[in-house]
Amino acid sequence: MRKIAVVGGGMAGSAAARELSARGLQVVLIEKTKELGGNIREYGCKATEICTKCNLCLVDQILQEVQESKQIKKLYESKVRDLRGQAGHFTLTIERDGRLEDIEEVDQLILATGFTKWSQIEGGLPEVPPGTSRVLWASELEELLLERKDRGNIEDPLSLGYIPEKVVFLQCNGSRSIKERARFCSRVCCGYSFRMAMTLKKFYPELDASLFFIDLQTGGNIQDLSFRRLEQEGIGYMNCKPIKLKETESGLIITYEDRSTGKIEEVQVDLLILSEGMHPGAQNQFWAELCNFQLDDDGFLYPLEEGEESGIFLAGSITGPGSIADAVKSGKNAAYRIISRQGGDGNV
Protein backbone atom coordinates (compact mmCIF):
# COMPACT_ATOMS: atom_id res chain seq x y z
CA MET A 1 0.00 0.00 0.00
CA ARG A 2 1.29 3.46 -0.87
CA LYS A 3 2.33 5.75 1.86
CA ILE A 4 1.60 9.47 1.89
CA ALA A 5 3.41 11.73 4.34
CA VAL A 6 1.62 14.82 5.63
CA VAL A 7 3.76 17.40 7.39
CA GLY A 8 1.78 19.50 9.86
CA GLY A 9 -1.19 18.41 11.96
CA GLY A 10 -3.10 21.68 11.75
CA MET A 11 -6.40 21.97 9.96
CA ALA A 12 -5.07 21.64 6.40
CA GLY A 13 -2.87 18.64 7.24
CA SER A 14 -5.59 16.91 9.26
CA ALA A 15 -8.24 17.46 6.57
CA ALA A 16 -5.85 16.00 3.98
CA ALA A 17 -4.97 13.02 6.19
CA ARG A 18 -8.61 12.21 6.85
CA GLU A 19 -9.51 12.36 3.17
CA LEU A 20 -6.58 10.15 2.17
CA SER A 21 -7.25 7.56 4.85
CA ALA A 22 -10.94 7.46 3.95
CA ARG A 23 -9.83 6.29 0.53
CA GLY A 24 -7.66 3.54 1.89
CA LEU A 25 -4.27 5.21 1.61
CA GLN A 26 -1.71 4.81 4.34
CA VAL A 27 -0.83 8.13 5.94
CA VAL A 28 2.04 9.27 8.14
CA LEU A 29 1.21 12.55 9.84
CA ILE A 30 4.20 14.44 11.21
CA GLU A 31 3.40 17.04 13.84
CA LYS A 32 5.92 19.13 15.72
CA THR A 33 3.83 19.57 18.90
CA LYS A 34 2.11 17.04 21.14
CA GLU A 35 -1.35 17.57 19.67
CA LEU A 36 -3.31 18.05 16.48
CA GLY A 37 -5.05 21.28 15.60
CA GLY A 38 -2.22 23.79 15.20
CA ASN A 39 -3.19 27.41 15.63
CA ILE A 40 -6.89 26.76 16.04
CA ARG A 41 -6.49 24.42 18.99
CA GLU A 42 -7.27 27.18 21.47
CA TYR A 43 -9.91 29.05 19.47
CA GLY A 44 -13.37 29.44 20.93
CA CYS A 45 -16.93 29.52 19.61
CA LYS A 46 -18.13 32.95 18.54
CA ALA A 47 -21.83 32.23 18.30
CA THR A 48 -24.25 34.77 19.72
CA GLU A 49 -27.84 33.59 19.75
CA ILE A 50 -27.09 32.30 16.29
CA CYS A 51 -23.98 31.01 14.52
CA THR A 52 -21.65 33.77 13.31
CA LYS A 53 -19.98 31.43 10.76
CA CYS A 54 -16.54 31.34 12.39
CA ASN A 55 -15.95 27.91 10.81
CA LEU A 56 -14.87 26.21 14.04
CA CYS A 57 -17.74 23.71 13.70
CA LEU A 58 -15.83 22.28 10.74
CA VAL A 59 -12.81 21.22 12.72
CA ASP A 60 -13.42 19.01 15.74
CA GLN A 61 -15.00 16.06 13.97
CA ILE A 62 -12.06 16.00 11.54
CA LEU A 63 -9.54 16.18 14.36
CA GLN A 64 -11.29 13.42 16.31
CA GLU A 65 -11.42 11.16 13.28
CA VAL A 66 -7.71 11.65 12.58
CA GLN A 67 -6.97 11.07 16.25
CA GLU A 68 -8.84 7.76 16.25
CA SER A 69 -7.87 6.49 12.81
CA LYS A 70 -5.64 3.43 12.83
CA GLN A 71 -4.71 4.02 9.23
CA ILE A 72 -3.06 7.34 10.04
CA LYS A 73 0.22 6.96 11.86
CA LYS A 74 0.73 10.02 13.97
CA LEU A 75 4.25 11.10 14.86
CA TYR A 76 4.06 13.82 17.49
CA GLU A 77 6.91 16.09 18.60
CA SER A 78 8.62 15.28 15.35
CA LYS A 79 10.39 17.55 12.92
CA VAL A 80 11.45 16.91 9.36
CA ARG A 81 15.20 17.35 8.95
CA ASP A 82 15.81 16.07 5.45
CA LEU A 83 14.11 14.89 2.30
CA ARG A 84 15.74 12.76 -0.38
CA GLY A 85 14.64 10.88 -3.46
CA GLN A 86 11.79 11.68 -5.79
CA ALA A 87 8.06 11.21 -6.22
CA GLY A 88 7.17 7.60 -5.55
CA HIS A 89 10.28 6.97 -3.47
CA PHE A 90 10.92 9.79 -1.05
CA THR A 91 12.88 9.24 2.12
CA LEU A 92 12.12 11.63 4.96
CA THR A 93 14.46 12.05 7.89
CA ILE A 94 12.70 13.17 11.03
CA GLU A 95 13.92 14.09 14.45
CA ARG A 96 11.99 12.59 17.35
CA ASP A 97 13.01 12.32 21.00
CA GLY A 98 16.40 13.72 20.04
CA ARG A 99 16.98 10.88 17.57
CA LEU A 100 16.97 10.88 13.81
CA GLU A 101 14.93 8.29 11.98
CA ASP A 102 14.10 7.65 8.35
CA ILE A 103 10.67 7.16 6.83
CA GLU A 104 11.28 5.34 3.60
CA GLU A 105 9.28 4.72 0.47
CA VAL A 106 7.05 7.75 0.82
CA ASP A 107 5.02 8.04 -2.33
CA GLN A 108 3.80 11.62 -2.13
CA LEU A 109 4.21 14.44 0.34
CA ILE A 110 1.82 17.13 1.53
CA LEU A 111 3.31 20.18 3.23
CA ALA A 112 0.91 21.93 5.56
CA THR A 113 3.14 23.67 8.06
CA GLY A 114 0.98 26.75 8.46
CA PHE A 115 1.74 30.35 9.41
CA THR A 116 3.25 32.40 12.21
CA LYS A 117 1.02 34.66 14.28
CA TRP A 118 2.12 38.26 14.52
CA SER A 119 2.14 37.94 18.32
CA GLN A 120 4.79 35.25 18.01
CA ILE A 121 7.03 37.72 16.18
CA GLU A 122 6.26 40.96 17.95
CA GLY A 123 6.17 41.12 21.74
CA GLY A 124 3.29 43.59 22.04
CA LEU A 125 2.80 47.33 22.05
CA PRO A 126 5.82 49.29 23.25
CA GLU A 127 3.56 52.02 24.69
CA VAL A 128 1.72 49.66 26.98
CA PRO A 129 3.39 47.92 29.93
CA PRO A 130 3.42 44.15 29.60
CA GLY A 131 0.86 42.20 31.59
CA THR A 132 -1.90 44.78 31.41
CA SER A 133 -5.38 43.31 31.27
CA ARG A 134 -6.52 46.18 29.05
CA VAL A 135 -4.78 44.87 25.95
CA LEU A 136 -5.37 41.40 24.58
CA TRP A 137 -4.07 39.72 21.47
CA ALA A 138 -6.91 38.25 19.42
CA SER A 139 -5.56 34.78 20.20
CA GLU A 140 -5.77 35.53 23.92
CA LEU A 141 -9.41 36.52 23.52
CA GLU A 142 -9.91 33.26 21.57
CA GLU A 143 -8.65 31.36 24.61
CA LEU A 144 -11.12 33.21 26.83
CA LEU A 145 -13.90 32.36 24.37
CA LEU A 146 -12.93 28.70 24.58
CA GLU A 147 -13.72 28.90 28.30
CA ARG A 148 -16.83 31.02 27.79
CA LYS A 149 -19.50 30.65 30.43
CA ASP A 150 -22.94 30.97 28.92
CA ARG A 151 -25.26 29.55 31.55
CA GLY A 152 -26.51 30.60 34.92
CA ASN A 153 -26.15 33.93 36.62
CA ILE A 154 -22.64 34.85 35.62
CA GLU A 155 -21.00 38.14 36.51
CA ASP A 156 -17.90 37.79 34.39
CA PRO A 157 -18.62 35.39 31.49
CA LEU A 158 -15.21 35.80 29.87
CA SER A 159 -13.11 35.97 33.06
CA LEU A 160 -11.80 39.43 32.18
CA GLY A 161 -11.92 40.53 35.80
CA TYR A 162 -14.12 43.52 35.00
CA ILE A 163 -17.15 44.46 32.90
CA PRO A 164 -15.89 46.28 29.80
CA GLU A 165 -17.91 49.28 28.70
CA LYS A 166 -15.91 50.30 25.67
CA VAL A 167 -13.80 48.01 23.55
CA VAL A 168 -11.78 48.72 20.43
CA PHE A 169 -10.38 46.24 17.94
CA LEU A 170 -7.17 47.21 16.22
CA GLN A 171 -7.11 45.75 12.71
CA CYS A 172 -4.31 45.66 10.17
CA ASN A 173 -1.96 44.91 13.04
CA GLY A 174 0.99 43.07 11.58
CA SER A 175 -0.48 43.53 8.08
CA ARG A 176 -0.53 46.18 5.35
CA SER A 177 2.73 47.69 6.56
CA ILE A 178 6.28 47.32 5.34
CA LYS A 179 7.47 48.28 8.82
CA GLU A 180 5.56 45.30 10.17
CA ARG A 181 7.16 43.11 7.52
CA ALA A 182 3.88 42.42 5.73
CA ARG A 183 2.77 44.53 2.82
CA PHE A 184 -0.18 42.18 2.32
CA CYS A 185 -3.65 42.06 3.87
CA SER A 186 -4.15 39.00 6.09
CA ARG A 187 -7.84 38.95 5.08
CA VAL A 188 -9.16 36.91 7.98
CA CYS A 189 -8.81 39.48 10.79
CA CYS A 190 -11.81 41.70 9.89
CA GLY A 191 -14.02 38.63 9.98
CA TYR A 192 -12.85 37.26 13.31
CA SER A 193 -12.81 40.67 15.00
CA PHE A 194 -16.34 41.35 13.79
CA ARG A 195 -17.44 37.99 15.22
CA MET A 196 -15.62 38.64 18.48
CA ALA A 197 -17.31 42.03 18.72
CA MET A 198 -20.68 40.35 18.20
CA THR A 199 -19.94 37.77 20.89
CA LEU A 200 -18.74 40.42 23.35
CA LYS A 201 -21.95 42.36 22.72
CA LYS A 202 -23.94 39.22 23.53
CA PHE A 203 -22.17 38.88 26.87
CA TYR A 204 -22.15 42.61 27.63
CA PRO A 205 -25.27 44.08 25.97
CA GLU A 206 -24.35 47.65 26.93
CA LEU A 207 -20.92 47.36 25.34
CA ASP A 208 -19.72 50.03 22.95
CA ALA A 209 -17.56 48.22 20.39
CA SER A 210 -15.68 49.61 17.43
CA LEU A 211 -13.01 48.66 14.92
CA PHE A 212 -9.96 50.49 13.57
CA PHE A 213 -9.05 49.31 10.07
CA ILE A 214 -7.50 50.49 6.84
CA ASP A 215 -9.88 48.54 4.58
CA LEU A 216 -12.79 46.32 5.55
CA GLN A 217 -12.59 42.75 4.22
CA THR A 218 -15.30 40.15 3.78
CA GLY A 219 -16.09 37.84 6.66
CA GLY A 220 -15.01 34.66 4.91
CA ASN A 221 -16.22 32.38 2.17
CA ILE A 222 -19.86 32.94 2.81
CA GLN A 223 -20.47 35.77 5.21
CA ASP A 224 -20.53 39.27 3.82
CA LEU A 225 -19.19 42.08 5.92
CA SER A 226 -19.89 45.66 4.93
CA PHE A 227 -20.15 49.12 6.45
CA ARG A 228 -23.91 48.66 6.38
CA ARG A 229 -23.64 45.41 8.31
CA LEU A 230 -21.47 47.08 10.97
CA GLU A 231 -24.02 49.88 11.28
CA GLN A 232 -26.88 47.37 11.57
CA GLU A 233 -25.11 45.53 14.37
CA GLY A 234 -24.25 48.77 16.15
CA ILE A 235 -20.50 48.38 15.77
CA GLY A 236 -18.52 51.56 15.18
CA TYR A 237 -15.51 51.96 12.91
CA MET A 238 -12.59 54.26 12.24
CA ASN A 239 -10.94 54.07 8.81
CA CYS A 240 -7.39 54.42 10.08
CA LYS A 241 -4.70 53.03 12.31
CA PRO A 242 -4.25 54.81 15.68
CA ILE A 243 -1.35 57.20 16.15
CA LYS A 244 -0.67 56.86 19.85
CA LEU A 245 -1.63 54.75 22.86
CA LYS A 246 -1.34 55.62 26.53
CA GLU A 247 -2.42 53.69 29.58
CA THR A 248 -3.93 55.60 32.49
CA GLU A 249 -5.61 54.48 35.72
CA SER A 250 -9.05 54.66 34.17
CA GLY A 251 -8.25 52.99 30.87
CA LEU A 252 -6.39 53.26 27.62
CA ILE A 253 -6.28 56.51 25.69
CA ILE A 254 -6.07 56.02 21.93
CA THR A 255 -5.18 58.94 19.69
CA TYR A 256 -6.15 58.82 16.03
CA GLU A 257 -6.83 61.05 13.06
CA ASP A 258 -10.47 61.27 12.04
CA ARG A 259 -10.09 61.07 8.28
CA SER A 260 -13.42 62.74 7.56
CA THR A 261 -12.58 65.91 9.48
CA GLY A 262 -8.79 65.79 9.42
CA LYS A 263 -8.83 66.39 13.18
CA ILE A 264 -6.88 64.52 15.83
CA GLU A 265 -9.25 62.75 18.23
CA GLU A 266 -8.87 60.82 21.46
CA VAL A 267 -10.92 57.91 22.70
CA GLN A 268 -10.74 56.18 26.06
CA VAL A 269 -11.38 52.43 26.18
CA ASP A 270 -11.42 49.61 28.74
CA LEU A 271 -10.17 46.96 26.43
CA LEU A 272 -8.11 46.89 23.26
CA ILE A 273 -7.99 43.74 21.12
CA LEU A 274 -5.04 43.45 18.76
CA SER A 275 -5.65 41.53 15.58
CA GLU A 276 -2.84 39.31 14.42
CA GLY A 277 -1.58 39.35 10.88
CA MET A 278 -0.76 35.96 9.38
CA HIS A 279 2.95 35.84 8.64
CA PRO A 280 4.88 33.18 6.74
CA GLY A 281 5.75 30.06 8.69
CA ALA A 282 9.19 30.06 10.30
CA GLN A 283 10.16 27.01 8.28
CA ASN A 284 9.23 28.34 4.85
CA GLN A 285 12.82 29.12 3.87
CA PHE A 286 13.87 25.61 4.90
CA TRP A 287 11.11 24.04 2.79
CA ALA A 288 11.87 26.25 -0.19
CA GLU A 289 15.48 25.06 -0.21
CA LEU A 290 14.66 21.43 0.52
CA CYS A 291 11.88 21.03 -2.04
CA ASN A 292 12.92 23.46 -4.74
CA PHE A 293 10.07 25.89 -4.15
CA GLN A 294 10.15 29.61 -4.59
CA LEU A 295 9.38 32.07 -1.82
CA ASP A 296 7.18 34.93 -2.98
CA ASP A 297 7.91 38.56 -2.03
CA ASP A 298 6.01 38.10 1.21
CA GLY A 299 7.78 34.88 2.22
CA PHE A 300 5.02 32.39 1.38
CA LEU A 301 5.74 29.34 -0.75
CA TYR A 302 4.77 28.68 -4.27
CA PRO A 303 5.73 25.66 -6.29
CA LEU A 304 7.83 25.86 -9.45
CA GLU A 305 6.09 22.75 -10.74
CA GLU A 306 2.74 21.19 -9.92
CA GLY A 307 2.47 18.56 -7.22
CA GLU A 308 1.56 16.05 -9.93
CA GLU A 309 5.12 16.48 -11.27
CA SER A 310 7.15 16.89 -8.11
CA GLY A 311 5.15 14.65 -5.79
CA ILE A 312 4.99 17.47 -3.26
CA PHE A 313 1.68 19.25 -2.64
CA LEU A 314 1.12 22.41 -0.62
CA ALA A 315 -1.89 22.93 1.63
CA GLY A 316 -3.15 25.62 3.98
CA SER A 317 -1.49 28.88 4.95
CA ILE A 318 1.98 27.80 3.82
CA THR A 319 0.99 29.52 0.55
CA GLY A 320 -0.58 32.64 2.06
CA PRO A 321 -3.16 33.88 4.57
CA GLY A 322 -6.48 32.08 4.68
CA SER A 323 -9.39 31.10 6.89
CA ILE A 324 -10.15 27.79 8.60
CA ALA A 325 -12.43 26.93 5.71
CA ASP A 326 -9.63 27.72 3.26
CA ALA A 327 -7.32 25.37 5.18
CA VAL A 328 -9.88 22.55 5.09
CA LYS A 329 -10.53 23.22 1.41
CA SER A 330 -6.88 23.19 0.37
CA GLY A 331 -6.08 20.14 2.52
CA LYS A 332 -8.93 18.23 0.88
CA ASN A 333 -7.84 19.52 -2.50
CA ALA A 334 -4.31 18.16 -2.09
CA ALA A 335 -5.72 14.81 -0.99
CA TYR A 336 -8.16 14.68 -3.93
CA ARG A 337 -5.34 15.34 -6.35
CA ILE A 338 -3.32 12.48 -4.92
CA ILE A 339 -6.32 10.14 -4.87
CA SER A 340 -7.46 10.80 -8.43
CA ARG A 341 -3.94 10.70 -9.79
CA GLN A 342 -3.17 7.35 -8.29
CA GLY A 343 -6.51 5.73 -8.97
CA GLY A 344 -6.39 2.07 -8.06
CA ASP A 345 -2.94 1.07 -9.20
CA GLY A 346 0.02 0.67 -6.92
CA ASN A 347 2.75 2.31 -8.94
CA VAL A 348 3.53 5.84 -9.88
Binding site: C45, A47, L56, L146, D150
Partner: peptide
Protein backbone atom coordinates in the same frame (compact mmCIF):
# COMPACT_ATOMS: atom_id res chain seq x y z
CA UNK B 1 -30.29 24.25 24.66
CA UNK B 2 -27.84 25.11 21.94
CA UNK B 3 -24.09 24.96 21.95
CA UNK B 4 -21.11 24.28 19.70
CA UNK B 5 -18.48 21.52 19.64
CA UNK B 6 -16.08 23.97 21.30
CA UNK B 7 -18.24 24.59 24.37
CA UNK B 8 -17.35 21.51 26.40
CA UNK B 9 -16.94 23.55 29.59
CA UNK B 10 -20.42 24.88 29.15
Amino acid sequence: LRLSPRMEKD
